[in-house]
Design a protein around this nucleic acid. Structure first.
Lengths: 134, 134
DNA sequence: GAGAGCTACTATCCATTGGTAAGTAATTAC
DNA sequence: GTAATTACTTACCAATGGATAGTAGCTCTC
């Protein structure tokens, strides 16, 4: 066994994991899905199609910029569809694709977890803050 | 019915939804869970406990700053536990709590979705980019 | 026909966040 | 005394995200 310095070993480990990262698209896609607005938009569309301004009103706190940005990337990823009706004024409907529907099931499960376990989390926070005063 | 300007109505709608946001803790917690590093850390800990540096090596691309930050908030939220062994050098183990384990099941499901559907997403992206040239 | 209003966005500016890289503490090994 | 270990901080800077205002195209009202 040849002697390797710690620096060499660290560099080797880094190279291995960088390669792993490049070859494994899961992390990238998971990072994409792990977005605040993505989960909210998908959850909002789960019951049925919605218009742009309805989404903006339903998802409290989203800016038009982020709403448009999120909708565009979700459309590009084939998770939602965008339908323009050239009436006056223009009407744009967004809906989940079959792919998006399969994802929505999981994300609403996470949402449901957040709902049922929020009290546990809040209790944990209070305990933590009591034990670790600022 | 008194006349209301559009500005007034917009302000009213904003106030309503801000109130809704404040009363509904789900959105806040969901936003917390919808974090790139949160899902990666929970997924990494799902098989079993891990040390700080092991997590840093397993999760490619995470900086010590973000790793510490993510671990702290997850500990505060009662999702992971932190155990310090005062050896030399110090050894710190992180593990999922029962609460964290219940969440891990959902997040690994999302991870599995990303794995199985990545080809669909990539195909959708190619189609989109062909139809919408820069 | 002038102004307000509707929808679905862009554009701009600025505060916050996140990444990079270097430093720290306490101790052992050489 | 120098290097190495682990588990972090800290400082700096680029990039992201949020608030706000503006735009286009048409209609409706007065």
């Amino acid at each position: 066994m040849p002697t390797t310095t710690a620096a060499q070993r660290r560099e080797q480990a880094r190279a291995d994991y960088d390669a792993f990262l490049r070859e494994c698209p899961t992390n990238q896609l998971l990072g994409r899905l792990s977005d605040k607005w993505v989960s909210l938009v998908v959850a909002a569309l789960a019951p049925g199609p919605m218009r742009y301004s309805d989404l903006g009103r339903k998802i409290a706190g989203v800016s038009p910029k982020m709403l448009t940005q999120t909708l565009r990337t979700l459309e590009r990823d084939g998770i939602i569809s965008r339908t323009v009706t050239p009436s006056v004024p223009v009407r744009v409907d967004y809906a989940l694709t079959p792919l998006g529907t399969s994802l929505a099931g999981l994300l609403t499960a996470v949402k449901a977890w957040a709902e049922t376990h929020f009290d546990d989390v809040r209790a944990a926070r209070e305990t933590y803050d009591t034990e670790n005063p600022a």
